[in-house]
């Protein structure tokens, strides 16, 4: 069975070096956009398109195992797409509704990052998706820390990053899972009112392969930013290990522009559905992407993981 969402690495390459490059050149960036794109151009070097899979993350693990057992190096940047997922899940084994029409997939990324870039990696997914959605003329799309993309207070996209170690050689990978509601327009009862799709926002169908190209190109750009900043940090680093973290970061800057989290009153928990912990007001994020919040007693708290609900606008997801 042929996949409906079928894109080829050559098409992504062409999109990256034509459309995406032109878009990026419109904004005054410190480094030349070509430099950033070269860093991230490995994204989508190989693309698998499936009509149906159980889970793309599981498929990625099998792909790594199969490649290793055949003595073949896994291509970093391999993207696995599926029109529909049969047993998809989110974090904490939550179910994830993935019918035809959405962009469901996973990317295999060899772990060549230093600690800070590794920590910021999940932000790149949310930023890339939010940029692609805004590119469709939806300026109200925002990123909620860490990387959920919301429109009108409803969840449009969710991401999951899992680290994985190859069983044969112990090589470390990151599996970047993504689920974006595009043309799928019906949601299970428990998600009704809390999830939204591009089709519903735009009141019409969206070119799924076209959006996939845009999202992957922007993911290439944002991972390129991570790599570029890593090189800058290495140049700045003087052995004390602190100085680099105190300097600005282009990916964090872009996240700040796209996020509406800062200033929001939130409910925080490491598993917000099962065990919400406390209410706070978000006052900022620090140089490692950690969330800085002020509690009711005026004290400040910094969290490096967990989940949020906005209290002003959201109902429980």
């Amino acid at each position: 069975m042929t996949a409906i969402n079928s894109i080829h690495p050559a098409a992504l390459h062409k999109y990256l070096w034509s459309h995406e490059l032109l878009e990026r050149k419109k904004s005054p960036h410190l480094p030349p956009p070509e430099t950033i794109l070269r860093y991230g151009a490995f994204v989508g070097s190989a693309i698998q398109c499936h009509a149906s899979l159980e889970r793309t993350m599981e498929h990625a693990r099998r792909h790594i195992a199969d490649s290793e057992s055949q003595g073949i190096s896994v291509i970093s940047g391999t993207v696995i797409l599926a029109d529909t997922l049969i047993q998809s899940k989110g974090r904490f084994a939550r179910s994830w509704h993935a019918p035809p029409g959405g962009l469901w997939g996973c990317m295999i990324l060899a772990d060549t990052f230093l600690s800070r870039a590794r920590t910021l990696l999940p932000l790149a997914l949310g930023v890339a998706c939010c940029e692609a959605v805004r590119g469709l003329g939806i300026p109200e799309a925002h990123v909620r820390w860490v990387n959920d993309v919301l429109v009108r207070g409803q969840k449009l996209a969710g991401f999951l990053v899992e680290s994985h170690r190859g069983l044969c050689h112990g090589e470390a990978f990151h599996l970047l899972g993504f689920g974006i509601n595009i043309n799928n327009d019906s949601f299970p009862a428990e998600l009704t009112g809390n999830a939204i799709s591009l089709r519903r926002i735009l009141d019409g169908p969206v070119d799924l392969p076209g959006f996939s190209l845009s999202f992957l190109a922007k993911l290439a750009w944002n991972i390129g930013l991570l790599c570029y900043e890593e090189e800058r940090e290495l140049h700045r680093w003087d052995g004390a290990g602190e100085q680099g973290n105190q300097a600005g970061h282009l990916l964090l800057d872009q996240w700040m522009k796209l996020s509406d989290t800062i200033g929001k009153k939130v409910l925080y928990g490491y598993d917000i559905q099962q065990k919400p912990l406390y209410e706070a007001v978000v006052t900022g994020i620090n140089s490692d992407g950690a969330l800085v919040m002020r509690l009711g007693d005026g004290t400040e708290i910094v969290e490096y993981g967990g989940e949020l609900l906005y209290l002003e606008t959201e109902r429980t997801e």
């Binding site: 974090r91 860490v146 899992e162 994985h164 990151h174 490096y304 989940e307």
Partner: peptide, 11 residues
């Protein structure tokens, strides 16, 4: 291990 919504299994 969970850090910034990146989950890493620890063996």
């Amino acid at each position: 291990m969970s850090l910034m919504k990146r989950d890493t299994p620890i063996y």
